[in-house]
Write a protein that binds this DNA or RNA. Structure first.
Lengths: 203, 203
DNA sequence: ATAATTCTGTAGCGAACGCTCCAATTCAAC
DNA sequence: GTTGAATTGGAGCGTTCGCTACAGAATTAT
């Protein structure tokens, strides 16, 4: 029984996310956000609360659409070792083809130290990524594709660290051979290699 | 033949560096910097130019005093493998005892993507760190303490990535076992372990 | 001493910031 | 058609931003 929104909430959130993703929290103004979303400032505040509340919504939106989606897709479509390998390769490719970097890493450095609530979100999401790597490592060991001698916990910790490190290098020192070499060497801790995943599997 | 400065340039630069280090470029105001340095805004501009020029001086100052000093100290006081191991362990300890993080990583994410000149500084310093790891790896292989089978280039790339990743995790997910596990697993690529360096060496 | 030159603090510039008030507008419910 | 609730754009609030003009203080060369 009232006037409906003239914009799509999810589309607007996408646009705002893009701005925060590219420029960070402090360097993005609410006027910028409104412009990107096609809204006036008043509508932004009416629909999303203040700047910080909008940011947390964008952060959640980004992490669901990017990190969680990637984890789910790889984990249910690939055997565990290939899931890990493909995850790192995708990170390298995305890092090289876009200068946006990773909103999780960006936020961990810029916002988390000064905002305990956002720090908790960051820690929780990093923990999710770590758990993905640990599950895959353990499953690979059960399947025989990952050396039984490696410690799944430490391996997951290294892989999480590598992903974050790759995102930093991609913004400060973006050279393909650097990112690929680091990813390859990180994957070497998984032990005896399998054949690289291909489209067709010869029986 | 004129009035001399009433403050010490190096001391003031230290204070400014501390502020940029803790809060980043955008979130640190020139008034904050002046307060920390004990100077009025006019003196800041007179002595250091504008905010960006002061930042680059602080960045150089920080990197010389922290990264280059650590590289030089470890490289000339420890055998190559221990130099690498100690470098990572020191990063873990510094990350856990201080919330400041790493100005190199912070700047790579916050400033480098929007400032090509600062991006060049970042890339050059990251390259220095990578070279340190490569030199140590090659020297360790010659000395027999690092497996001859590892690729020194990829190893250096992974170690550089690990250091950057550790600095991100330290700010977003600061748990000792996570950082130590990642460091330990990264070091495992060096191959057959040596005894951990201790204060006294039994002959 | 005098002059020349540099440093220092105060005050203030225009612009942008996060945020809010408000009148006008729009649409569902009746 | 009328009513009522919600959205919308514009104007503007007070604050802070990077930066600078300016006048007085301080020191060396002459």
């Amino acid at each position: 029984m009232a006037r409906p929104r003239a914009f799509d909430q999810s589309t607007a959130l996408d646009a705002a996310t893009q701005r925060f993703w590219a420029a960070g929290y402090a360097a993005t103004s609410v006027r910028d956000l409104g412009g990107a979303m096609g809204l006036s400032q008043a509508s932004v505040y009416n629909a999303f609360g203040d700047k910080r509340a909008l940011f947390t919504q964008c952060l959640d939106h980004y992490l669901d659409a990017t990190m969680r989606a990637r984890i789910a897709r790889l984990e249910q479509s690939l055997p565990p070792r290939q899931a890990i390998e493909t995850f790192l390769h995708e990170i390298v490719e995305r890092s090289l083809e876009s200068r946006l970097g990773c909103m999780l890493a960006n936020t961990a450095l810029e916002v988390a130290p000064h905002d305990t609530e956002i720090a908790a979100i960051i820690a929780e999401r990093m923990s999710e990524l770590e758990s993905f790597f640990r599950r895959c490592t353990e499953a690979g060991q059960r399947a025989g594709t990952i050396a039984a001698s490696v410690d799944p916990i430490a391996t997951a910790q290294l892989l999480l660290t590598t992903v974050m490190g790759l995102r930093v290098l991609a913004r400060g020192y973006p050279q393909r051979d650097l990112l690929e070499g680091a990813a390859r060497q990180a994957l070497s801790v998984l032990g005896s290699p399998t054949t690289h995943p291909t489209e067709r599997n010869t029986p």
